[in-house]
Structures are given as structure tokens and as C-alpha cells.
């Protein structure tokens, strides 16, 4: 994906490595970009590097090489110091709703922290109740503690806190995978709606392609640290070009009641999934 000057976020040739007993290259030369008001989905199996990429975008992960820039400026690494105020317009929603909220602080006060971040950047103020309403929770919840809420409610509060900071770019790392099936689609849809209402870009990371199809303008498919396919979501969904994308899509069981087993790959991780296929990139 070619980076253009009006991109909100552009990631260029990003490489992330973890040094343990051996060096693991989690992200291996990934480039992508997000424009304002765009929802980009990042999909792939667990361990494909999508979470590492998300963490690098907000500055939680130090790239081995390559760059992450937001509005043309390099995103600073989240060190021990206070994050520069300008970059609080990048917010993140985490996967596990249980650890997303401080257990000792009331919900309202946590959303207020988001509002403060917006004020510190000179953005308009707001009230925690407004945000609760926007994420579909009763306003009376301001005085609750996290342990009094269900997982789905916690995740909505975490989304409210992130949005209260009035971000330009919202990064969501598997925000719905810990939720009940019946609320997954609605929360994902709500995130899209709220992000776009605010004119923000949304980087939505998920392994659930059915949801991604519902909310993403563009989709990036990652496999073992590399992008194997990318482009307009509908296009990828209807006519997957890369063998891995094809396997991924055909493995999704359709809830149609017909009792058809999804196609299983002949082998675990066949070599062709790793093949580079230029025609599968930047599909329109």
C-alpha cells in the first residue's frame, strides 16, 4: 500500500523481533496505511504478528527496523516518560476486558481520564455519561466498579474511555474475541460507527473474518509475519487470490443449518501459504 501524504498512519517495512532462546521475527517487513475515516482490518491466525503490529502502532513495541508514522511524525516509543500530548490522539482497545479497567476506580472516573486527555490536546470537553450512552450502557454505570460489570460491559467502558480521548486513530486488538457471540457483531459495528462519527481511522485486529467483512473498508491478511493479501474487503471476501486467504475463508463454518463441514486444509500450514503473490496485494 503506497503511503500518501494525507495518510493518518503509515507503517513502512516494519520488522519486529523477539529475542529469547532464539530470535523470533513476529512481523517481517509489513507496510500499510490508514486514511482518516477508514476502517482497516488486520486478520490472521494467532501468532501471525497482528498483535505485535498493533502494539508497535501505538508505541508499545520497539521495531527492529522500519517505521511507524502518524500524521508524518514518527510514533514515539512508550517509555517511562509521559507520552507526548500530541500522541494521545492514538488510542487502543485491548483484547481482555477483564484487565482493561482499573479494578479500584469507578467507571466514570476512568472515562474522565480519557476526557482529560482530550482537553489536554485542546479538544472539546464532555461528560462520562455521554460516552456511556454512546456505547450503549446506562449512564448510572458511572458509579460502578469494573467487577460489577459483565465482560461485554467492561469492553464497552474500555471503548468509551478510549473514545473520550477523542482519538484520530483507534487501534483495537481483538476487541470482541472475549465477548459473547451475540454481542460481538453489535460491538464491532458500534466501534465502526463511533470511530467514523468522530472522523477517526480504525485499525481493527481480528481473527473473525465474518465480522471483519461486516465492518472493514479494507482488509489486510497476515500470515507468519507477512502480508499475503490486502485490499477492499468485499473483493477479498468474494474472490480471494492468495491460497492462505482461500483456506481461511473456506474454513469458516456457515451458520446456515445445512450441516456442511468447512473445508479443512490438507496439511497443517502448507508451504503455499507462505508464497508471495504480488497480485493479491492492494486489490481494488
Amino acid at each position: 500500500m503506497s503511503a500518501s501524504s494525507n495518510d493518518l498512519l503509515s507503517v513502512t517495512d516494519l520488522v519486529i523481533e523477539y529475542h529469547g532462546a532464539s530470535v523470533v521475527r513476529a512481523v517481517d517487513g509489513v507496510s500499510l496505511s490508514i486514511a482518516p475515516g477508514e476502517v482497516l482490518a488486520l486478520v490472521g491466525e494467532s501468532g501471525c504478528g497482528k498483535s505485535s503490529l498493533a502494539r508497535a502502532v501505538v508505541g508499545m513495541e520497539k521495531p527492529r527496523s522500519g517505521s511507524v508514522s502518524y500524521r508524518g511524525q514518527a510514533v514515539p516509543l512508550l517509555g517511562v516518560r509521559r507520552r507526548p500530548t500530541a500522541f494521545t490522539s492514538i488510542q487502543m482497545v485491548f483484547q481482555d476486558p477483564n484487565s482493561s479497567l482499573n479494578p479500584r476506580i469507578r467507571v466514570g472516573a476512568q472515562i474522565t481520564e480519557g476526557i482529560r486527555a482530550a482537553l489536554a490536546r485542546g479538544e472539546a470537553g464532555s461528560k462520562p455519561e455521554e460516552w456511556l450512552e454512546r456505547v450503549g450502557l446506562p449512564t448510572a454505570m458511572v458509579s460502578r466498579y469494573a467487577h460489577e460489570l459483565s465482560g461485554g460491559q467492561r469492553q464497552r467502558v474500555a471503548i468509551a474511555r478510549a473514545l473520550a480521548a477523542r482519538p484520530d486513530l483507534l487501534v483495537a486488538d481483538e476487541p470482541i474475541s472475549a465477548l459473547d457471540a451475540s454481542s460481538q457483531a453489535s460491538v464491532a459495528d458500534m466501534m465502526r460507527r463511533l470511530a467514523l462519527d468522530a472522523g477517526a481511522g480504525l485499525l481493527f485486529i481480528s481473527h473473525d473474518l465474518a465480522i471483519v467483512r461486516l465492518i472493514a473498508d479494507r482488509t489486510v491478511v497476515m500470515y507468519r509475519g507477512q502480508i499475503v493479501e490486502s485490499g477492499v474487503s468485499e473483493r477479498i471476501w468474494e474472490d480471494p487470490a492468495h491460497p492462505y486467504t482461500r483456506a481461511l475463508l473456506s474454513a469458516i463454518p456457515a451458520p446456515d443449518g445445512r450441516g456442511i463441514l468447512p473445508a479443512a486444509p490438507a496439511a497443517e500450514a502448507p508451504a503455499e501459504w507462505r508464497s508471495a503473490l504480488p497480485a493479491a496485494l492492494d486489490r481494488v
Binding site: 494467532s46 481461511l248 474454513a251 469458516i252 463454518p253 463441514l261 468447512p262 479443512a264 486444509p265 497443517e268
Partner: peptide, 11 residues
């Protein structure tokens, strides 16, 4: 499990 692995287990 990942969806491609899931398909194999379902079979």
C-alpha cells in the same frame, strides 16, 4: 484454535 485448524478438528 485458528479457523483452519478448527475445520480439521470438526472433520
Amino acid at each position: 484454535l485458528d479457523v483452519t485448524v478448527q475445520a480439521g478438528i470438526l472433520h
